[in-house]
């Protein structure tokens, strides 16, 4: 795990503070990553609702990365990066799997899909976060990125 609090001038605002984990692509690792992410949000005073939403987004993205990665016979790794900008908490999750196309994810709220037992994970992660993107990393795998802006004081009232 790398923790960077250097006094050097950051290259970008996202370098203000970042933590990176490189973990085996195993379900047992998910809880650890969720707890680190929510603990970091605690440090910056995010609301309980924000922490719950980001925890679920991290959880669903990791489940997706690990279950898709497990289709391969070779051991896979997942890289998770948390970073703070002044008013935003960023999460990047990179896997070595085949990824998915966001445009082909079925809408689970469509009447035809409403009673399907699966297919809500990425949909929820997308709905609970901001700037949700999926990027193909040539020769490597896929990166899912999302963030959560810290609400201003007047927005925090009534958020819980």
């Amino acid at each position: 795990m790398n923790s960077n609090r250097s006094n050097e001038k950051p290259k970008t605002k996202r370098d203000n503070f970042s933590v990176e984990l490189n973990i085996p692509s195993e379900m047992e690792m998910i809880r650890l990553v969720e707890e680190l992410g929510t603990a970091l949000m605690d440090l910056r005073g995010y609301t309980e609702r924000d922490r719950d939403n980001i925890r679920l987004a991290i959880h669903e993205t990791l489940v997706n990365a690990i279950t898709h990665g497990s289709k391969s016979r070779k051991p896979m790794r997942v890289t998770v990066r948390f970073a703070f900008e002044e008013q935003c908490f960023y999460t990047d999750i990179e896997d070595e799997g085949e990824g998915f196309d966001l445009d082909t994810v079925k809408d689970p709220t469509h009447p035809q899909n409403l009673l399907e037992p699966t297919g809500r994970g990425i949909f929820l992660a997308q709905k609970l976060t901001e700037n949700f993107t999926v990027t193909r990393l040539p020769g490597k795998g896929f990166r899912v990125s999302f963030c959560r802006f810290k609400p201003r004081k007047n927005e925090e009232i009534g958020n819980d």
Partner: peptide, 16 residues
């Protein structure tokens, strides 16, 4: 205290 998409899916499956 916490439910994910698989948990929600299982409630749907239980319902059907």
């Amino acid at each position: 205290s916490f439910i994910d998409s698989s948990g929600i899916g299982e409630i749907v499956r239980s319902y059907t």
